[in-house]
């Protein structure tokens, strides 16, 4: 018999307390225990990005995160980016540029875009950064495509995703 472990996390601005099996991933804890179904399960093995959420401000894969290891963490999904009920520049840009079709990968794309824009603002390089020694990142289309490549989209709305991220980053 498995013993459960108490866990307290903040999800989209709300504190949630629960007991979890040590085996439970953050994704399953959110979806199955807390009924937070915004992050999606596309592969469950870190190979698609559909489960992307922000944990303590950084984009991570909730399917490869053990819930027990994130006690006290601040978790934000695509539905909690604007906790006051307002809109967020990234979701606005996704809507304005039709950056999705079926919508299944979209919450992960949105969280990933928020993280990617933040990383670029902090000068973090990517494989598309021409000058690794430089301190500034110019978030052009090639940079965005590389930084968003951890989020697969089988509908392949990639062109519009890049445009949306470009637009959101320029705000």
């Amino acid at each position: 018999m498995t013993t459960t472990i108490p866990l307290s996390i903040t999800v989209d601005g709300e504190q949630r307390d629960l007991d979890v099996d040590p085996r439970t991933t953050l994704l399953d804890a959110l979806r199955e225990r807390l009924a937070v179904t915004t992050p999606k399960k596309g592969c469950d093995h870190g190979q698609c990005g559909a489960c992307t959420v922000l944990v303590d401000g950084r984009r991570v894969l909730s399917c490869l995160t053990l819930a027990v290891a994130k006690d006290g963490a601040d978790v934000v999904t695509a539905n909690g980016l604007a906790p006051d009920g307002g809109s967020h520049p990234v979701t606005e840009a996704f809507l304005a540029n039709d950056a999705f079709q079926c919508g299944y990968c979209t919450p992960g794309q949105v969280c990933s875009a928020v993280g990617a824009i933040d990383e670029a603002r902090r000068g973090m390089p990517s494989a598309a950064t021409a000058d690794l020694a430089g301190d500034d990142v110019v978030l052009d289309r090639a940079e965005i495509a590389e930084r968003m490549s951890g989020n697969l989209c089988r509908c392949a709305a990639y062109v519009n995703i890049v445009t949306a991220v470009e637009e959101a980053a320029s705000r």
Partner: peptide, 15 residues
Amino acid sequence: RRIEGPDKVTGTAPY
């Protein structure tokens, strides 16, 4: 614009 867009970008569209 896609009618269900707001539900999809927030992940609240029920699959």
